[in-house]
């Protein structure tokens, strides 16, 4: 039972990190209807900036720099590429982000090489023990940080004029534009926010017990894709639930791997995708996604 509780808590913590990534993904989708496959590389970029600066300027400034860096890269991608291609077919726009992803990932993995970089986080490998359950401090920090950020984000989405503009743009771009919402700024903001969230997620994907920032980190970011789509691409609630589902599934499948040996090794990496496929079979628009009404 204590193993189960431990796995569950770890899963929820990881899930909240996935939710951060998925949230950025959903924000971009709502603001611009673009499925952003470059998200993994934004995450890697944020992590890389933090990792390379923390020795010189300390961890917290480096983290801020990482967030700012990823946000800037996101904004730059929007400004230089996506804005120029706006109005194209959705699949084509998605493929453009793949092109961007190939460029960014190649550059970052070339810089990383085979190195594993530490991000210099203050938590180290400390473990909190509560009776039979032990939890790494990093996991608690991840959950708290993600919960805080998500709350702030959802409040901003609901009450600030930026959030209203973004929701209006998602609802109906034409009407929003006529009402004076500057769509360009909205989508620029969405990309920047998504980049920032991804940078925070990069931190928590690379702290203890994972070894550090390496090439494979961007693969971890791929787990946020099922999180976003099984919740429903256009739903912020969906991103949160999706993130948690993915995190918990992954954690349980890894933890009970020995009992599931007939499924082969490394099941934990696969489980989120299997859950995604299962959910899509039943609900093609995801758990919370709106089935878009179409006017002919």
């Amino acid at each position: 039972m204590s193993t189960f509780a431990e796995l569950l808590l770890n899963g929820i913590s990881m899930g909240s990190v996935y939710a951060l990534i998925a949230l950025g993904f959903v924000v971009i989708f709502r603001a611009t209807e673009v499925v952003n496959f470059a998200h993994a590389s934004l995450l890697l970029a944020g992590g890389y900036v933090t990792a390379s600066l923390h020795d010189d300027i300390g961890f917290w400034p480096a983290l801020l720099a990482g967030i700012a860096g990823a946000a800037l890269i996101g904004a730059a991608v929007e400004f230089l590429v996506m804005r120029r291609a706006r109005g194209g077919d959705h699949s084509v726009l998605a493929i453009v982000t793949i092109g961007v992803d190939i460029l960014l990932t190649t550059e970052l993995t070339r810089r990383l090489g085979t190195d594993v970089l530490a991000l210099g986080d203050p938590w180290g490998d400390a473990v909190l023990t509560l009776g039979p359950i032990s939890l790494a401090h990093t996991r608690i920090a991840a959950f708290v940080a993600a919960a805080l950020l998500i709350t702030v984000f959802l409040l901003a989405f609901r009450y600030t004029s930026w959030g209203v503009a973004m929701r209006a743009a998602a609802e109906s771009p034409e009407t929003a534009a006529l009402m004076g919402v500057r769509l360009g700024r909205v989508s620029l903001g969405a990309w920047a926010v998504a980049g920032g969230l991804a940078a925070v997620a990069a931190l928590f994907l690379t702290v203890f017990p994972t070894p550090g920032l390496e090439r494979a980190t961007s693969l971890a970011a791929f787990k946020a894709f099922p999180a976003a789509i099984l919740g429903g691409l256009d739903s912020t609630t969906g991103a949160l639930v999706g993130g948690l589902v993915v995190g918990v599934t992954e954690s349980l499948a890894t933890g009970y791997q020995s009992d599931l040996a007939f499924m082969g090794r490394g099941l934990g990496d696969l489980a989120p995708y299997l859950v995604m496929v299962a959910i899509l079979l039943v609900r093609p628009a995801g758990l919370f996604g709106t089935k878009e009404p179409a006017r002919v």
């Binding site: 499925v35 496959f37 959705h90 699949s91 998605a94 791929f222 894709f225 099922p226 976003a228 789509i229 691409l233 082969g264 490394g266 099941l267 990496d269 696969l270 995708y273 299997l274 995604m276 496929v277 899509l280 093609p284």
Partner: peptide, 17 residues
């Protein structure tokens, strides 16, 4: 379109597994 794109990522991981 793009939804299928994400769903098919699952195939890659299933395949590798």
């Amino acid at each position: 379109g793009p939804y299928l794109g994400i769903a098919t990522i699952a195939l890659i991981f299933i395949g590798q597994h």
